[in-house]
Nucleic acid binder design. Structure first.
Lengths: 123, 123
DNA sequence: CTAACGTACAACTAAATGGTTGTAGGTAGG
DNA sequence: CCTACCTACAACCATTTAGTTGTACGTTAG
């Protein structure tokens, strides 16, 4: 079911919008509630203490970030969270951690080289 | 309406600031470069096409999100990314995914019940 | 057909963000 | 000592964001 296993690298702008979309409690809640894809924007809007238009904008942010898709069903738009999206977020985190761990390893590598040198000098 | 107060989970505001801090290319780069904890704010500022104060603000955002700590060494402040921080981000993603997967499972559970019924009513 | 519903979008406000410059104070090197 | 460096922070500006209301338009129900 996963459209994965491809080393699809994500651009900086995409990661920006991804994390920005996730950086809001209401939007994260919308994500959770839209898992089943059976809620329209109006039904979602009923759940929050803000106007319909405000919720509509939140959904738009999530949509631009690729976290949800809207499927038009008659006069209503059903919101459905993209299963692969969180995977992309996780990939971004993985990449971030990998890069910086590489730097740490590079430094400890230098330190090891240093001790290797000391070892070599002792030899 | 109710927020889950599990002991190992992070509050909404913390997740907000966490993801918000991650939603900026410069800040993610600072995070990577500060892995070894050997760069001061000034040295970091040299790496970006913006003023020292701007970088200082980015570091402050990361610091408020708990992603880095500043260790004062003499007249300079060494920036060091907190190793546990990305783990917290990952936990937040895990929790998000878990919650919504629970909803999906609940729905597919209903569907399964439905197919069980159909199976039982098989002609 | 008409009325009600759901959505889209525009215009507006208040507040937050990302950037700038300037100033003040602590610390180190010469 | 004193000068240069590093940091902290304030004030300001432009842009974006999160919210509002209002309006227009397609779709469904009665």
């Amino acid at each position: 079911m996963q459209t994965l296993d491809r080393p699809d690298l994500i651009g900086d702008d995409e990661v920006d919008s991804l994390f920005h979309a996730l950086a809001d409690t209401t939007r994260r809640d919308i994500l959770r509630r839209s898992a089943a894809g059976d809620l329209s924007v109006s039904r979602l809007a009923d759940l929050y203490p803000m106007s319909f238009a405000a919720v509509q904008k939140h959904v738009a942010v999530l949509e631009r970030a690729g976290l949800v898709i809207k499927e038009r069903r008659g006069r209503e738009a059903l919101v459905c969270t993209d299963q692969a999206a969180v995977r992309r977020a996780r990939l971004a985190l993985d990449h971030l951690e990998a890069t910086w761990r590489a730097r740490v390893d590079a430094m400890t590598g230098l330190l090891d080289e240093d001790s290797e040198q000391r070892k070599g000098a002792a030899r």
